[in-house]
């Protein structure tokens, strides 16, 4: 395949596949954790192999793309952005994999009041919406959708910041649930990390479309 445009389309599709795979991993990890469904948790764990294989494929394909085509301008930004997007997606996959393992380790369903108080659902809905924006930004090269992610990440960060205080208060009231609270704290942190990684992906998409580097900039 000599045509650089065709090569980009192929690479982009593999990137999209990786995005969809990691998105489904995160969704399933949430469902498994909240409903204590170990079958779904096992599925997430098994999917990790596919994520790793796809991660390797994208890296090797991009290596070849760069080495054989000497890309510049938009082609170079595409390759660099996809490398970073892939790296961040693989790490998202790792977070989902960890959550699935925690679900199995916890070996019990979370108390509904705990899910309510820690705003697990709000956090997950926000993450879901961030994923949607990322997919739109990635497939349609949509800057506006990419920029939406930053605000939503702040919501995630706020929920996570409240978690510690809530757990501190609640664990005193109900010491029997201490294991659940501690596990919820760890899982919450994992989702917060997924939010950060989605933000990184959004920055890479903006870099590709607009040639602007937003990394480490406060105002985005």
């Amino acid at each position: 395949m000599i045509n650089i445009e065709e090569q980009r389309v192929t690479l982009s599709k593999i990137g999209e596949e990786m995005l969809n795979l990691c998105q489904s991993q995160v969704e399933q990890s949430f469902e498994a954790f909240i409903t204590f469904d170990t079958d779904i948790a096992e599925e997430v764990i098994l999917k990790e192999n596919r994520v790793n294989a796809l991660d390797l494929k994208i890296e090797i394909d991009l290596d070849n793309f760069i080495a054989l085509n000497n890309p510049v301008a938009t082609d170079l930004r595409f390759a660099l952005a996809l490398l970073k997007i892939n790296y961040n997606l693989e790490r998202i996959g790792d977070q989902a994999f960890d959550i699935a393992n925690y679900t199995i380790d916890l070996n019990q369903k979370l108390a509904p009041e705990l899910v309510e108080k820690l705003q697990f659902k709000v956090m997950f809905e926000t993450l879901e919406s961030m994923f949607k924006d990322i997919v739109t930004a990635y497939t349609d090269e949509n800057l506006k959708a990419a920029r939406k992610v930053f605000k939503k990440d702040k919501v995630i960060n706020q929920i996570n910041a409240n978690t510690f205080l809530i757990v501190e208060e609640e664990v005193v009231k109900n010491p029997a649930l201490v294991k659940q609270y501690l596990m919820a704290l760890v899982v919450m942190k994992k989702y917060e990390k997924i939010g950060d990684l989605l933000k990184n992906i959004s920055e890479s998409i903006i870099y590709y479309i607009d040639a602007k580097i937003l990394k480490h900039k406060k105002k985005k």
Binding site: I4, E5, P71, V72, A73, T74, D75, L76, R77, A211
Partner: peptide, 17 residues
Amino acid sequence: IFTNPEKKQTENYITGR
């Protein structure tokens, strides 16, 4: 020019299109 050219024609040329 080689990272983010202003003109589409330039980009199309340097990227071999």
